[in-house]
Design a protein around this nucleic acid. Structure first.
Length: 885
RNA sequence: GGAGGCAUAGCUCAGUUGGUUAGAGUGCAUGCUUGACAUGCAUGAGGUCGUUGGUUCGAUUCCAACUGUCUCCACCA
């Protein structure tokens, strides 16, 4: 045993977790051999943003991936988990700008593009290192030799290739459109980047005088300040009350500009006043109306949402200040009819929370409809499947209603759009390599100032990370990837776009399975967020409880797609489980004299050995089946139950008498079985709790098996090691022990008060002499006697308590401790319960429909149950009769 | 407005193709310094599985409606 590690007296994960991780790295276990022909299993990590550090959501995401990856690796798959980070354009730029402002009082414009980007790169280096450090602490088995970054050279090349390719196909275009503009971030946002929040607002009812008439039209608007950009008023042509206005001319109050009344069925009859002011430059719907009617677009705001010259005397005011002043003036001039409070949804920037301003501008777009079609089909025909399946509805909902994707951002941190403009001849060139002169006229060109949406590069992640557009060995081996593990919150942002670009660029789906998990919430069920300050740092948790405990807490009782709550209680339960395993292993180890483990021949195995092997094999089958179906929580629960409730609570206890023997065959058999089952269990558990399993593995004789548990073979279900007969026999013993404990407990008999145990049974084999030690140890028996019957002198002598179980009637002579009245009451209670159950079963079995239509196995099982209860009832009645006599 | 999730023990949650006396963790109660573990051991109490219907021999499980709750998408000036 000397060549194996010791296990320290207490479970202290900080003593070994870092050491073990380092060893794994040094041995290169995480780096697969691309030339190995085993079937591949690959995952690309959802790249964390380099904005900060990892939170609990990441910890969950990475834990689930690591479980799958370690499981498959142990099964012999050629396994790659490719790590990396995301440059997260807007989010990172905001962070760096914030810090620049706080620490130096500067803006990015003060530094200039180049110097500012240097700052961002420095930030990236720092946080990328922090994030990878955190991932390592968690135990993730990523192949660090293949680590990537969405903005590194290779990924940038892929981005450029895709952009130019799509442009050449006419799927990327530059257009003057209405887009969501964040006046604080000063950039365009895609539809997905806008969040909607209910906010109290008002309807301002304003009079628009009719030209050449005395009357006026009443317009209701939530945004009076956009009035300066009105170029029409629309009514529904079917609206009897309003259609007479069509073709008339209105005069814009205060401004005096004339605008027409047009007919458009966009206007809903009966809503508001029935007339809508049309501001094509500041409202997405009005923009479309404007296009239909060839209306002029008048932009009334600057990029920072202050009013421009079109607002006349309000020029330079912020949009809200202008609104206030304008409303006051309208009222003063008699144009304001009334103000009605109105709750409405306002779009805000998902990064900074500023109310977005819809404005028209020149942006780049991806034409999504033709690209979405194959992506929809891939999920419909099962090429890609979501787990749980219901999330595919989410996906279809988005993809079927998809609009063109605005991909240009007015930022500095990101992939620069490869479009070059020639001021001399006006030519625009989109190309793979940078150019300085116009290919048409030779004039000097300037590159488009904008960068791409960060999701444009994340969309390429499954293949850009493997070297595309080169046809690399990695790409051939590991693409398509096997599974994508991510939260439901980014299905639209990311998953859908990866599917689109994978199919378009590679001609194949980027992954077969999308495994969706929920959010990690705090103990009260609230979303963890910075503003609430309820975020929990995974590193602090790891420091306190260990990485294995954190992983356990995140993966137990968690079912796919559902949110989970995180709490200290969960962490304690997880740590206690690790501690339990640690101590059980320590116990096994200190009883070992053997140097190598070999499962003894079946003929040498005792009843309890066969029992534990049977339970172990059933656990293997359950775990493998659950993991194959991504039921991580189910798999872990069955390992937990096996270790704690079966192996520790029963099997270890049952081996103690053999372990106490010296140099007997029984002792050696017990050692081997204890160790064999423990080793197998450690392997089952390793994907979930990699550190503790490795540490214990190294402390046990694992013989010719692998040098590290992470490269050992995962257990395979072996039916030949299931022993139904012996397993059932020992189950009877356990049932009797439990029944005795229960009775003693009910009667408050302390364990120190021993009593003889008389077992009357027809299953004498079950209660063979070798089991009598179990009763002594686990049921406080001073002596155990087993027979088909005992004489009256034995069983009545000492005021014996009678216990009726399915397989035996037990007499427990406890003399003066027995209160005969209580005993009678208890037996009567039991009798009633059995009678009720019997009545229920008899009713069920007399139901012809049940007997005729239910499967035979079900009917038989019910019959067997009935017979058993009847037998038990007879026993209880006999006991009662004896008491009364 | 459209779509979806959830509703099971005091609390947090499992429940794998409809048939168990409905489970776990935690909390609670009672008793234990049983030589691995008090981060432990033993035992127990606690649930008409949200409401009402339907399908079925049989529903916690499938269907419909309702109530409560959460989320996603769209957004009407």
């Amino acid at each position: 045993m000397d060549r194996y590690n010791e296990l320290s007296k207490t479970y202290t994960p900080s003593e070994f977790e870092d050491r073990i991780y380092q060893n794994w790295c040094e041995k290169g276990y995480f780096t697969p051999d691309v030339t190995n022909d085993a079937e591949h299993f690959s995952i690309v990590i959802p790249p964390p943003n380099v904005t900060g550090q990892l939170h609990m959501g990441h910890a969950l995401d990475e834990t689930l991936q690591d479980i799958l990856v370690r499981y498959k690796r142990m099964q012999g798959f050629n396994t790659l988990w490719l790590p990396g980070t995301d440059h997260a354009g807007i989010a990172t730029q905001i962070k760096v700008e914030e810090r620049l402002r706080e620490e130096e009082g500067l803006t990015r414009y003060d530094l200039g593009r180049e110097a500012f980007l240097e700052r961002v790169w420095a930030w990236k280096d720092k946080y990328e290192a922090r994030i990878t450090g955190q991932l390592k602490k968690l135990g993730t088995s990523c192949d660090w030799s293949r680590q990537r970054f969405t903005f590194d050279e290779g990924c940038s090349r892929a981005v450029r290739e895709v952009f130019v390719g799509l442009y050449e196909k006419g799927l990327i275009y530059r257009g003057h459109r209405i887009i969501n503009w964040c006046p604080r971030c000063l950039t365009a946002l895609s539809d997905a980047e806008v969040e909607y929040k209910d906010q109290p607002g008002s309807f301002w009812h304003i009079k628009y005088p009719i030209k050449g008439e005395d009357g006026y039209v009443e317009i209701a608007t939530t945004r009076p300040e956009t009035m300066f950009g009105d170029t029409a008023v629309a009514v529904n042509p079917e609206d009897e009350a309003m259609k007479h206005l069509i073709g008339k001319t209105l005069i814009l109050p205060l401004v005096g500009r004339e605008i027409p009344v047009i007919a458009d069925d966009y206007v809903e009859i009966g809503f508001g006043t029935g007339c809508v002011k049309i501001t094509p430059a500041h409202d997405p719907n009005d923009f479309l109306v404007g296009q239909r009617h060839s209306l002029e677009q008048i932009k009334v705001m600057n990029d920072d949402a202050t009013m421009n010259a079109h607002a006349g005397k309000y020029e330079g005011m912020d949009r809200y200040a202008c609104r206030k002043a304008l409303v006051a003036d309208l009222e003063a001039e008699g144009y304001l009819v009334k103000v009605v409070p109105h709750e409405h949804n306002v779009g805000v920037c998902y990064r900074c929370g500023t109310t977005v301003e819809p404005i028209t501008s020149d942006q780049w777009f991806v034409k999504m409809k033709p690209l979405a079609e194959p992506a929809i089909k891939a999920v419909e025909d099962g090429t890609i499947r979501f787990i749980p399946e219901r999330f595919s509805k989410n996906y279809f909902n988005w993809m079927n209603n998809i609009l063109d994707w605005c991909i240009s951002r007015q930022l500095w941190w990101g992939h620069r759009i490869p479009a070059f403009y020639c001021d001399a001849c006006g030519e625009m060139t989109v190309c793979r390599e940078d150019i300085e002169v116009c290919p048409k006229c030779g004039g000097k060109v300037r590159q488009d100032e904008d960068v791409l949406d960060t999701w444009f590069s994340s969309a390429l992640w499954p293949f850009s990370t493997m070297g595309w557009p080169e046809n690399t060995a990695d790409l051939q081996k590991y693409y398509p990837t096997s599974v994508l593990v991510t939260g439901y919150d980014i299905i639209t942002f990311w998953v859908s776009r990866m599917i689109v670009s994978g199919l378009e660029q590679m001609g194949r789906e980027p992954f077969h399975t999308v495994f969706i998990h929920g959010l990690v919430r705090d103990a009260q069920g609230r979303k963890m967020s910075k503003s609430l300050g309820n975020g929990i740092d995974p590193l602090e948790v790891i420091e306190k409880y260990g990485a294995d405990a954190l992983r356990f807490a995140l993966s137990t009782g968690n079912s796919p797609g559902n949110d989970m709550r995180f709490s200290d209680e969960k962490m304690e339960a997880a740590r206690n489980f690790a501690n339990k395993l640690w101590n059980a292993s320590r116990f096994v180890r200190m009883n070992l004299t053997i140097d190598r483990v070999e499962l003894p021949d079946a003929s040498k195995l005792s009843m309890e050995d066969k029992w534990i092997l049977t339970a172990y094999e059933k656990t293997v089958a359950t775990v493998v089946n659950a993991l194959d179906h991504f039921e991580v929580g189910v798999a872990l629960a069955s390992i937990y139950e096996f270790i704690w409730d079966v192996y520790c609570d029963w099997y270890i206890e049952l081996t103690k008498s053999r372990l106490a023997e010296k140099d007997t065959e029984g002792n050696l058999v017990a050692q081997n079985v204890l160790c064999y089952v423990l080793l197998g269990t450690l392997k089952l558990l390793h994907p979930f709790m990699p550190f503790i399993t490795e540490e214990i593995y190294g402390a046990l004789p694992h013989g010719e098996d692998a040098e590290s548990i992470m490269i050992a073979r995962y257990p395979v279900h072996d039916e030949s090691l299931e022993f139904a007969k012996e397993s059932a026999e020992l189950d009877r013993v356990i049932a009797v022990i439990k029944a005795i404990r229960l009775r003693r407990n009910e009667m408050n008999v302390p364990p120190s008060r021993k009593a003889k145990v008389y077992i009357v049974t027809k299953y004498e084999e079950s209660f063979a002499p070798s089991t009598h030690a179990f009763f002594a140890r686990l049921a406080s028996a001073s002596e155990t006697a087993v027979a088909a019957s005992f004489g009256e002198d034995v069983v009545s002598a000492d005021n014996a308590v009678q216990i009726v179980t399915d397989s035996a009637t037990v007499y427990l002579p406890l003399a003066d401790l027995v209160d005969m009245e209580k005993e009678k009451a208890r037996l009567e209670g039991e009798s009633k319960k059995l009678t009720d159950e019997i009545a229920r079963l008899e009713k069920k079995l007399s139901n012809e429909g049940f007997v005729a239509k239910a499967p035979a196995a079900v009917v038989d099982a019910e019959r067997a149950k009935l017979a058993k209860y009847q037998e038990n009832l007879d026993g209880v009645k006999a006991a009662l009769a004896k008491l009364k006599a």
